[in-house]
Design a protein around this nucleic acid. Sequence first.
DNA 1: TTCATTTATTGAACTTGTTCAATGTTTTTG
DNA 2: CAAAAACATTGAACAAGTTCAATAAATGAA
Lengths: 217, 217
Amino acid sequence: MPTAQNAFSRKYYYLGNVFTEPHKMHNLLKQNINKHISLSVNEMEEFCNLFQLKIIKKKTFLLSEGEVCDFEGFVTRGLFRVYHIDQNGFEQILYFAIENWWITDIDSFTNEKPSQLFIEALEDSEVLLITKKDKEFAYSKLPLIEKLFRVMTQKTHVALQRRMIDNLSKTADQRYLDFIEKYPVLYNRLTNLQIAAYLGISHEFLSKIRGKMASKK
Amino acid sequence: MPTAQNAFSRKYYYLGNVFTEPHKMHNLLKQNINKHISLSVNEMEEFCNLFQLKIIKKKTFLLSEGEVCDFEGFVTRGLFRVYHIDQNGFEQILYFAIENWWITDIDSFTNEKPSQLFIEALEDSEVLLITKKDKEFAYSKLPLIEKLFRVMTQKTHVALQRRMIDNLSKTADQRYLDFIEKYPVLYNRLTNLQIAAYLGISHEFLSKIRGKMASKK
DNA sequence: TTCATTTATTGAACTTGTTCAATGTTTTTG
DNA sequence: CAAAAACATTGAACAAGTTCAATAAATGAA
């Protein structure tokens, strides 16, 4: 297995029982990066070679509470939920991640402290992972990577600010309608249990909202 | 007035009727930057000279809804609130900023679109402002500045994630107690109206919570 | 296919928080 | 200082959302 020392020299990834050429798996990732910064072909190759594919079965965990999150991931297939369990045993879903989304516990990752979050695959999934070591290696070698993650973090932050305001100002009915409109793909791949945990309401109440809406049509 | 072209050559700032030496006003800012990155004395001077002091009277606005936010600010004196007004005319406070805190509408600033937020001084205040132009100038000249804002955005994001989880999982009583414990300084400088708008509850209900807690002691 | 598990719905009683209105208190400002 | 404005408290009626329990429907694994 390659280490950080020769990270840029990686050519193939171990995937199940097969060694697979990275460029095929990395197309989604490259497209995603190109949205934010302009790397040369070589730089892009160097950076993407730092990622390693991991296959995660449905209902298994990429991260559990108490572990230090030493990776950042880019989802190439499947669906994850990132959630917290509070003192009363209730789950709050911080966000979902499907293809083209990034996942990590940014708090645990940056401060190298035990995570308070779970990251669980809700479908059979694939994710490209970069370790903290390799990410820092990239920061030092490729200055634009610093910009990439600054810009991405800014966007994520803006989205969370909007969600915060919506949660403070809107009723559950409205937040549910907003969710369907904003994330139709997620709506079709999630159970109402998951959606309720994201909206911050009980699933029974979500069911009543749905009933009310269905009868009004 | 100096422009971006000769921004690094600025020596003095116009402050009310007096020209003031920048290094005195910038000590707080420098300390704050030093917490995140290590700049040489010269680099620090260059960067800090891009900031311009602005004095803001109580109840006046640093930014209003509809304006494009073209600055990022570092508070050296006073207290601001950053808030949104929803369709029903209710205010949601996104955050407060006192000495040593940064303020901007990151959405409007990065995407150069009209702001949906107000930034209002709740006390007579002073803030060091850097324009978008000068900030980009700094990004290009001083690579560590890219890191500075990446790290700061990450921290802000982590804090907002925690608040999101708390808002989803805790009752207003508990959120109020948490607020007092976490921000005792703000608690002493804010009215209950402001605190209620931050917690996402009516000020009448906050008053009832306070009454209940007072009688229980 | 079948049985077990998970997910969804519904109702009744309850808790949390809102709204409106009235009243008192504090702060600001001329 | 006095008047006005902003802030805080309280109660009663109401609305939003939870909890618990019972039941139905859908999904998954052997």
